[in-house]
Simulated assay, not measured.
Amino acid sequence: MKLAFLSDPNSENAHKAIKSILNEIITTDAENNGGTIKIGYIASQPDPTREYYQQTQLLYKRLGADLSVYLELESGFLQSSLMALLECDAIHLSGGDTFRFLAALKQKGLLPLLRQFVVNGGAVIGVSAGAMIMTPNISSAVLCGDSNHCDLTDLTALNLVDFLFAPHISAQLLQKGDFKQQVSSFSQQLCLCADNEALAVIDNRVLSYGQPHWAIA
């Protein structure tokens, strides 16, 4: 298993987490034979100018990987892009509206395909909303201000790990009484991650970059 959970993809610790995943791909992927790592991108919602995709392309280029497959889930969905995505070494799940992103993935029937991608040895790198979708469910999205505007009733997600993830949680927010009360209502282990913090999960090892806060149920 090769997973990265990022709050802000432009932070130093996010880059370290991504590098750990890319290094693991190079180490374990015999078919790569030292070639360029191929990354696919799933947009959380339409990005007509592909602004965020292009920013992410530059990020991976700086880290020595090639982001060249773009998949949109709503009006611009292409089956050919999905097939190309599943041939990549890693899939990048973008940030955005967590509820809308999960609803679109469910509507396209992509959760089982993404789980199988991981079983087959593929890596997944999630940013903010994308990171929360990698966990058992997205109930933690309310902690970083997301609202369920699409009235999604089933919050179950990819379930690739046994903990929940909440991005953009500052040290100041962790000290607030009402926030602590919100956190205490969760019955699962919860990782609260500031913008300059990240996690990587490689096989059964959880690697922390920075000092994310763990709330133990």
Results as ranks from 00 to 15, higher is better:
K2N: 14
L3Y: 04
F5L: 02
D8M: 01
P9L: 00
N10Q: 13
S11L: 04
N13Q: 05
N13H: 09
N13G: 01
H15C: 06
K16P: 10
I18E: 01
S20F: 02
I21V: 15
L22H: 01
L22Q: 03
I25K: 13
I25C: 07
E31W: 13
N32D: 01
I37T: 08
I37D: 07
K38I: 06
I42V: 11
A43S: 15
S44Y: 05
S44C: 09
P46K: 07
E51K: 03
Y53S: 02
Q54I: 12
L58H: 08
L58C: 01
A65G: 01
S68I: 04
L71P: 13
E72K: 06
E72A: 11
E74D: 12
S75K: 14
S80H: 02
M83Q: 13
C88K: 10
A90M: 10
I91W: 07
G95C: 06
D97P: 05
K106Y: 05
L111E: 11
L113Q: 14
L114F: 11
Q116E: 15
F117Y: 15
N120W: 00
G121V: 09
G121T: 11
A123T: 09
V124A: 09
I125S: 10
G126N: 09
S128A: 11
A129G: 00
M132A: 08
M134I: 03
A141T: 03
A141W: 11
V142N: 07
N148Q: 10
N148C: 12
H149S: 13
C150D: 15
D154H: 06
N159M: 00
D162A: 09
L164R: 06
I169Q: 06
S170Y: 06
Q172G: 08
L173R: 15
K176R: 15
K176L: 15
F179R: 06
Q182P: 00
S184Y: 07
S184F: 07
S184A: 15
S185Y: 04
S187L: 11
Q188P: 03
Q188T: 11
L190V: 08
L190C: 12
D195R: 04
E197L: 03
A198Y: 02
N204Y: 01
V206E: 00
G210C: 03
W214N: 02
A215L: 04
I216W: 10
A217R: 02
